[in-house]
């Protein structure tokens, strides 16, 4: 349970950048897509998993690398934190794609 709570804290820290950044990319994608909902969800999802995620990891490394020891002292490695965070995002995107399918075909 402690590890899950810590993973959520790490997720919050990382996504204080990734979420608004990916949303911005999603909004930009509305402008270049024929279907606004699909553009928003596709752009947001792709950025959340790739560019936004990589950039958030890089910024965290630059600004808060020492804080990794907060997690290491509870037995969490960098890889576990990254995989855990990515898994939450995959779940979020799966739900978003269900919403997209419902809105477009439902």
């Amino acid at each position: 349970m402690t590890k899950l709570k810590l993973l959520f804290l790490y997720y919050r820290s990382l996504h204080s950048f990734n979420l608004p950044f990916s949303l911005l990319v999603g909004v930009f994608c509305i402008a270049i897509s024929e279907n606004k909902v699909a553009g928003l969800i596709n752009g947001f999802s792709l950025c959340l998993l790739t560019g936004g995620f990589a950039l958030a990891l890089y910024l965290y490394e630059q600004r808060h690398s020492q804080q990794y020891y907060f997690y290491h002292n509870q037995g969490l490695s960098r890889l576990q934190l990254a995989v855990g965070t990515l898994s939450v995002n995959l779940l979020l995107i799966f739900l978003l794609f269900l919403v997209k399918i419902y809105l477009l075909h439902g």
Binding site: Q66, Q67, F70, N73, G75, S77
Partner: peptide
């Protein structure tokens, strides 16, 4: 990697390691 095993080691790094938010 002892830190991955519960109950063995803890490390106090030189710089502050606590989250500031």
């Amino acid at each position: 990697k002892p830190y991955l095993h519960a109950g063995l080691l803890a490390y106090l790094p030189q710089q502050g390691f606590l989250p500031k938010n």
